[in-house]
Design a protein around this nucleic acid. Structure first.
Lengths: 107, 107
DNA sequence: TTATTTGTTTTACAAAATATAAGTATATAT
DNA sequence: ATATATACTTATATTTTGTAAAACAAATAA
């Protein structure tokens, strides 16, 4: 039985893939992480995480058409699979259940 | 500047420390993880993670009195610090914000 | 008093996740 | 044609996380 949870960075990347929809490709994802978390991220770290998520079946990808800007070559666009949605949901539900039990965390 | 987020297992342990309150010690925490997640956990992994969380200032601990059962020696009881509460809250809020943007994840 | 049980602590190691670096490919601009 | 920019791919290194084992300590049971 393989593990069915995500590392912290994997989860963040996966959420951002979901949020960016058709715009979910390497550089964009990196920018979004930087803006949302303030932490500095390496583009290759994003790519390699995306590939790992793809190996695990949580995203799938296709190449887009080139965009009409200087250097605008084809992008690899990622999107959530149903397994990806499922793992995100399960992980979040588990945490929400625990939050209910923690007085200090009640909103 | 040090990192201000938690690994996946660290977050799980921290949440369970919060949930177990005065009963938050090594073996109990491990049992709770097994029951809630079904994954098998090593007691040392729990202990070592607790120490790491303590180093980072997210929990603090004290020894309890012995309990009146066979072998019931003193336990090291962990509890959340305010920094621990803060980091949990921030991480969860960040995810909730992203969830809002993901059509597939709307409840 | 010695065996058994609960429980922590420490150390060494292994595996997994994440980060860095170097290299490749393909666009547009000039 | 050549320069420059965008973007991915592959390889390698580092850090973080988790496992395993052993040693230690203190309680109760018999």
């Amino acid at each position: 039985m393989s593990k069915n949870y995500l590392g912290e960075f994997e989860e963040l990347v996966l959420l951002i893939v979901g949020a960016l929809q058709e715009e979910a490709y390497g550089n964009n994802i990196m920018q979004e992480i930087i803006e949302r978390t303030g932490r500095q991220v390496n583009l290759s770290a994003v790519h390699i995480t995306l590939y790992r998520l793809e190996d695990k079946g949580y995203v799938k990808s296709d190449m887009s058409d080139p965009s009409p800007v200087r250097g605008g070559r084809r992008k690899r666009i990622f999107r959530l699979t149903s397994a990806g949605v499922k793992v995100l949901r399960e992980q979040q539900e588990q945490r929400i259940a625990l939050w209910q039990l923690i007085p200090q965390l009640k909103f």
